[in-house]
Each structure stands twice: as C-alpha cells, then as structure tokens.
Simulated scan of single mutants.
Amino acid sequence: MIATLDRIPTMIQGEGALARIGPEAAALAGPGAVVLLVADPGLKASGMVDEALGALRAAGLEPVLFDGVQSDPKAAQVDAGAQLAREAGARAVVALGGGSAMDAGKLIAAIAGASAPAMAYALCAAPLPQAGLPKICVPTTSGTGSETTRVSIVTGPDGSKQWFWGDELKAERVILDPALTVGLPPHLTAATGLDALVHAMEASTNRNANPANDVYAHAAIRLAAAHLERAVAHPGDLKARAAMQLAAALGGVAIDNAGTAIGHNIGHALGSLRPIHHGRAVGCAMLATLAWNVAEDDGPFAAVAAAMGEPAEARRVPAAFERLMRATGVAISLASEFEGVTPARLAAQMRRPENEAMRLSNRRAATDADLEAFAAAVLSQS
C-alpha cells in the first residue's frame, strides 16, 4: 500500500490567539484588504464576532460580516456568501464558529472567484476553481476537524448531505484559542468531542489507515480519552479545552488523509432524515457497530484500545467507548427523534451514493444485510 500525508495548515494555539487573525489575514490578503468574516450567528451575543471584527480592523483591514449560516448549512447560503465576497471585493475569508461555519466559509472562499453555484462542484462533478481566496479557520467547538481538512459538507436542495473536496478547500491558517470554547454547553462539548474521537478511531482502523497517519489519529484518541470528561464537567478548565481543540484538529488531519468509515456512513444517513447533532449521530452509530467491527480485528482496534488507556485488546474498545459516552451524558436512545423511521428507510439512506465511500472504506466489508442490522441496532439502542 502506498500512502501519502497531505499538507497540514499552519496552526496557532493558545489563549488569546483570536487576536492573531488580524496580522495573519493581512499577511494573506495584503495591507488594507477587504476580508469576509463568515461567522456563526449564535456567536454575536458572546462578543466573539465583535472581537474578531476588531482584530481585523486593528490590522488595517476592512472586514465584511456574513452571518447567514445555520447548522448544516445549505448550498443557497454558501452561494449568498460567495456573492457577497465578490461584490465586496474580498481577498481572504475568516471562518469563525463550529463545523457548519467552517464548512461554509471554506466553500465560500473556494468558489468566490468563479460564478457557478456551489452545487456545480458537489461530489466532484466539476473541479473547484483555482482562483480561490485564502482561508483562516477559527473553531469555537472541538469536534468536526473541518479546520484542518480539505472537505466541506453542505445540505443540497433535496436535503441530502453533499460532499465537496479538494486542496482548494484547505485553510492556510488555523487559530486554536481554547477560550472560545468555554461557553459551549456541556451537551455540545460532549457531542463535538465524540465527533473528534470517532474521526480518529475510524481514520486509524479503516482500509486507508497507515502508520504515518496513525501518529495523528492516536494522538487525537489519547487527548480525547483523557480530557473529554474533564472538559464537560469543568467547562472553564482551559487545559482540558485546549487538549480537546488539539484532538479535533489532529482528528481532522487524520480523516483528511484516511477518511472515515461505517460510523460516519450511518451518522450522515441519520442527519439526512431528522435533525440531530452530527457528533451524537456518529457516536450512536459507532456504539452500534463497534462489537461487529472489532470481531475481525487484525491489530488496528487493539492500538485504539491502547490509545484510550486500556489494555491493547480490541475487545476492550466497545465498552470503553460506551463508558465515555455515558459518562459525558450523551443521549444514546434515538427513539423519540426518529419515531416512524424504519430500519429499511435508514438502510436505504446508508446506501445512497453520497454515503457509499464511507461504507466502502470500512476495514470489515459491510453487506446490505449488515446495513439493515446496523440500522435496526442504532434505532433501538438505549
């Protein structure tokens, strides 16, 4: 097997690092440039948006705010942001927020230099434009890893999760300021942290896993396993918050090189049927499939167990993962939210083209019968 490690964005980490977006944006865009700030609208009340705008202005830049981004951003919102960037003459994009804001911001930056709508590039139907804008990602959650990946996920007009990928989507700079995550409620800290953990677990155990990339994946697993409970129980602990930020960023590096697997196949299928936090969705999916996955382990899951602080035995992973889910208060039962969704319907979503790559990358091959069993398991567990 021939493996490659893709470039990793410059990462700047530390309390107060948000102030660095000014000089970093100026270095990328040029003195006095217009910079589009793509921000989660929910951050306005926290003062983060004003702080970011102030940092850009202090560097002599002209920021323009676009906050028309919602959770699971729609392609139409990306198109609106790209049009604003064109009209304003933006020369760089700063994405501030959770995975949705970063996914949208990266895609806005990538397509702003052309005129085609976002959906023209979905699933690599057309190559992304070469004349994209430089990007700075500033995560305010610790989970998606979007800050370090060359991927954006956007909701298409039919409600399906559409994938966009290419080096044109990768940020030039990543700012990791743990103080930005302190206000995240415990249930979201837990769900996003699980997302980071699942990223790293899948990247190190799927068909694309390789020893060089495992360095990043296993580091992310160790950080998440050691610090997630503390970050949930003690929100003001900046050491735990910084560890989870780094876990998310390294988990992003891991999936950027190796992709995900069956847990994300199920998680994305769930999200296309009913509103559910992505981290919780993939956590529930991982829980429902781990026993099946570790049954034929040839080493990778044993390494995951060790990274989680367990004896290096694959059979330890399902229980360790479940303990962490329950200890952090993540709701495992999907019965109320997915009432009326049958296993057959969920399995059909799992087989859709946009989810096929995640199924095929799973180390243990998943048959259609397996998908039906997984769907039944994830919908019924409690």
Rank of each mutant, 00 (worst) to 15 (best):
A3C: 13
I8Y: 04
M11S: 09
I12Y: 14
Q13H: 08
G14M: 03
G14K: 01
A17P: 02
A26L: 12
A29V: 01
A29Y: 00
A29I: 04
V38E: 03
A39F: 01
K44L: 11
V49P: 00
V49N: 00
V69C: 02
Q70I: 12
S71R: 10
A82Y: 06
E87G: 05
A90E: 04
A90Q: 01
V93T: 03
V93A: 03
L96P: 01
L96I: 11
S100P: 00
S100C: 08
A104V: 07
K106I: 09
L107A: 07
A118R: 00
M119L: 15
A120E: 15
L123N: 12
C124L: 10
C124V: 08
A126F: 05
A126R: 12
P134H: 04
K135Y: 01
V138H: 00
G143P: 02
G143C: 10
T144M: 07
T149G: 11
T155E: 15
T155V: 12
P157C: 06
D158T: 09
G159V: 07
G159R: 07
W163N: 13
L176H: 08
D177R: 04
P178C: 15
A179Q: 12
L180T: 02
L184P: 00
A190D: 10
A190S: 15
G193R: 01
G193D: 08
A196G: 02
A209K: 00
P211R: 14
A217Y: 01
L223Q: 04
A224E: 03
A226C: 09
L228F: 08
G236W: 11
D237F: 12
A243D: 11
M244S: 05
L246K: 11
L250T: 06
L250M: 12
G251P: 08
V253H: 02
I262E: 00
G263A: 13
I266M: 14
I266N: 03
G267F: 01
L270S: 03
H278I: 09
G279V: 00
R280H: 08
C284I: 12
N293L: 09
D297I: 06
A305W: 00
A306N: 09
M308L: 13
A312L: 10
E313H: 14
R316C: 10
P318S: 05
P318A: 05
E322R: 14
A327Q: 14
A331R: 14
A335N: 07
F338G: 07
F338L: 13
E339R: 14
G340P: 12
G340H: 10
V341M: 08
A347P: 05
A347K: 04
A348Q: 15
A348P: 07
Q349C: 09
M350K: 03
R351Q: 15
E356L: 14
E356Y: 10
A369L: 11
D370P: 06
L371D: 02
Q381C: 10
